[in-house]
Design a binder for these strands. Structure first.
Lengths: 331, 331
DNA sequence: CTGTTAGCGCCTTCAG
DNA sequence: CTGAAGGCGCTAACAG
């Protein structure tokens, strides 16, 4: 069905040289006589030759391919990372194989195995949980792994993280400085590293200021829109709910805002949010007074560079973990 | 550096059979004695054998890999499509190689060539423009292509589109039914198919209602946030600007809203929008009265299925072009 | 500088 | 049902 492609043999014959010479011209790695080069190039042009990367990979044991695994592809955060990694990596001749782990540890393990079977040269992942046995398995095959956004435990790998605790603390402190004394927390399960660290930041700001963290106004749902909606609804069903809230991420923020814009209209006048994740639409959300901006593009870029360092043999020492600073935005 | 992986030979030796038998057990395509099967499986288990997909691909000329090319990865629209395609395709053993064309025809051509060199089994793309020479080149190599969201011209390929004209008309008509007589248009260059069709829908609604499309309040920027911001700013700088606007997509919508929330506060009371693209945050945008919802997940699923049909040889006839209906949402 | 030669790991006739 | 053997397209020694 598929027309047989032109191979290095066809080119060699056409140019009257050996396949080795063609290979050398194509890869430009070893010296070749000008005359030969010209003839090979002409033949390539004439026949429309394109190297078969699969065959090349079989030989070189390198695919110039990077696996990317995230719990969810359709999130503003992930796609910005994907975009910047693609920019950085494609400039170096690498392609991205993108997989979703669907927030399941089991799926995540399955994807890693798949990627390893496809001989990716490296993997960038946002781990779904703290577990790392499957990650160590991949590393054992000599495939470098870089974590981004979150870290799995008990595993030695490069990582690009942000200062979640500091960012959350700063945002909470800003609310406190504005005079808020009671501040609720809309969070996510503490088994997720970012949620855990942001909770710590919130808590530490409250404690330092001598304020009390009220259990009734501290929720640990998940990072999704519905969770934000439900938590907000639940909290505001109490007559003495606080007016101010720290929110763990963008989707939860959307959900909480959504509740206020629809069912919870009666509370609209008094509520104020400080939320992690500055997004293009953040300034448009009505209750958002502060948001914590992550250097997302930089995170992707850095992760890409760390991985390239490992793959191309430059870096070989102990794992390096970057903690990038966040920026507090006032709306 | 990378530890040599266990191969089919190792398994064959361990199980005391030929590599051919191992291959047959692994692929389960041909009859094998139960006893052999058991021994091979045991050996595989023991050695932790994983088939090398690259070698397999070289032989079978199929990589179980799909190329995906979009003008921009970091858009909610694209990522939702990627998510649903990944779900559908990974269930069939395919992986996605995701590339950005950066809204450049030249880059797009480069990516297609790259993907063809990587022997992808098929390509799904959101074309950046109407041009199609490079797409035909890919098809000539026997690689099936499916367009999604937009169509390039002069090329025979499957496609999944929505009824842009109908959706835009419906939204505009809703504004008219609400009593708006003057309605501006925030659009994008007419060389982009979706922008063109949505403009037609807007225009046809206006004309049918006997209303006039005013040049001064019709803008053709691009599909990005800044463009929406600038267009809105420009239009509202005229004293007699309309109160109602049809907006071509989500990002332009964010930009326009952003202008109103910041510099253009004085206009906030009177403005009303109808916008293409319903997003999770759409209900939260203050001026958004109507939005046109596309069945995004379905689009990705359909495109994936069409491609699978072509790849696995089921469908072989003329290109099929699906036009999905949009839904008007009132906020 | 260039050609010859061996594979990379797997699948797949073709005999047996 | 199974094994032997050849080859997918390319690269990398190794001679020349």
């Amino acid at each position: 069905m598929r027309p047989r492609a032109v191979t290095i043999h066809d080119v060699a014959r056409e140019a009257g040289v050996s396949t080795a010479s063609v290979s050398r011209v194509v890869n430009g790695d070893r010296p070749v006589l000008d005359d030969t080069t010209v003839r090979v190039k002409a033949a390539i042009e004439k026949l429309g030759y394109k190297a078969n990367q699969v065959a090349r990979s079989l030989k070189t044991r390198a695919t110039r391919t990077i696996g990317v695994v995230a719990p969810l592809l359709a999130s503003d955060f992930f796609m910005l990372i994907a975009e910047s990694m693609e920019r950085e990596l494609s400039a170096h001749g690498y392609s991205l194989i993108v997989c979703s782990s669907n927030e399941s540890l089991e799926e995540e393990a399955k994807r890693l195995r798949l990627l390893s079977g496809r001989l990716v040269d490296g993997i960038v992942m946002i781990p779904t949980s703290d577990h790392s046995a499957h990650v160590r398995e991949i590393q054992a095959k000599g495939i470098p792994v870089v974590f981004i956004d979150r870290l799995a435990l008990n595993v030695a790998a490069d990582a690009v993280l942000v200062d979640n605790e500091g960012g959350a603390r700063e945002a909470t402190e800003a609310l406190i400085a504005d005079g808020c004394r009671r501040i609720g927390f809309l969070g996510a399960g503490l088994d997720v590293m970012t949620a855990r660290e942001r909770y710590e930041g919130y808590r530490s700001a409250m404690t330092r200021a001598g304020l009390v963290v009220e259990d009734a106004y501290t929720s640990f749902g998940n990072l999704h829109i519905e969770s934000g909606y439900n938590s907000m609804q639940e909290m505001l069903s109490h007559a003495d709910a606080p007016d101010a809230y720290f929110i763990v991420n963008a989707d939860t923020h959307i959900g909480a805002t959504n509740y206020l814009m629809t069912a919870g209209r009666s509370h609209r006048e008094r509520i104020v949010f400080a939320s992690f994740d500055e997004m293009p639409y953040s300034p448009l959300l009505q209750f958002c007074r502060y948001s914590v901006s992550q250097p997302i593009a930089l995170m992707g870029e850095l992760a890409a560079r760390m991985l390239l360092g490992r793959i191309e043999g430059g870096s070989t020492g102990a794992p390096s973990i970057a903690r990038l600073k966040t920026t507090l935005i006032k709306h």
